[in-house]
Simulated scan of single mutants.
Amino acid sequence: MTHVTKERLLDSGLSMLLVRGYNDLGIQALLEATGTPKGSFYHHFRSKEDFTLQVIDRYMAEVHRGLDHSLGNTSLPPLERVRLFFELSQEKYRQEGYLGCLLGGVGQELSGVSETFRRKIESCFTAIAIRIAGCLEEARQRGELPPEKDPRQMADLLVDCWEGAALRSRLRRDPGPLGTMLDFYFAAIR
């Protein structure tokens, strides 16, 4: 039963953090939205910070499932697999009302004031870039990218560009920046 409560808090917290951000997410609002007593929250989480770090872990598990699904689809060429990951992310953003990436939102809000969150968010982006770099390396070995290209630098640039486009998409509540960025990036790297 307690596992169900924790899962419900994390699930609701993920969507509430995306909409409200960290500073505007009150524990009381979360408890009311989930019908959870206050003591149950503190049974599962030491603090709001601990809760948010666990929400980020939950979000990253979703991201890694998306990476597995896309990058692991060996029926597609490597560059198409990479693009597929971002296109599926774009579709998820659409379903959520173009609120963008939880990592980007929390990172922008907290990285200047919390070293814990700065390190956590950076490690998440690094993990994503490393996974993408592996697929870009495969593309380079197959001759789909110039041999002098560094897959890790290309992956870092792709994640950086995506996060900027996700922010603009959130500001506009419009997918335009995401698609434009993907078209530009994949045309430029060849």
Rank of each mutant, 00 (worst) to 15 (best):
V113R: 01
A139T: 12
G143F: 06
R168G: 00
N73C: 14
Q28T: 14
L17Y: 08
R8L: 13
V106L: 11
I128E: 03
M16R: 06
S123I: 09
G112N: 06
S40R: 02
Y98V: 02
Q108Y: 03
R140Y: 04
L18W: 02
R8I: 09
S70L: 12
C161R: 02
Y42D: 01
P147S: 07
L157W: 03
P146G: 13
R142L: 15
L31Q: 01
T180M: 06
G112R: 06
L99S: 01
H69E: 15
R172H: 07
S89D: 05
A155T: 09
E163R: 04
P37N: 07
T126H: 11
L71Q: 11
P151V: 12
V113E: 04
E91D: 13
E138H: 00
G107L: 07
L88D: 15
G13Q: 00
D57W: 08
D156R: 01
D50G: 04
S47H: 09
L157F: 01
T74I: 13
P77T: 11
T74G: 04
H69M: 14
E163N: 01
A133T: 14
R46G: 12
S40W: 11
G134H: 07
G164R: 04
F45R: 03
L145V: 03
V106F: 00
A155E: 05
D68G: 14
Q28E: 11
I121L: 00
R58Q: 15
T52I: 14
D68F: 05
S123V: 09
L9G: 01
K38Y: 15
S47T: 15
A165M: 06
G134F: 08
V19T: 10
F41E: 01
L17H: 05
M16H: 03
F125C: 07
K120A: 15
L14Y: 09
L171I: 15
L76E: 13
A129S: 15
G176Y: 08
A188V: 09
C135D: 00
V159C: 04
V159D: 00
G143T: 11
L14R: 08
R81W: 04
L84N: 02
N73Y: 11
Q90Y: 06
L182G: 05
W162M: 09
G66D: 13
T36V: 10
D150E: 06
W162V: 10
E62S: 09
E122V: 15
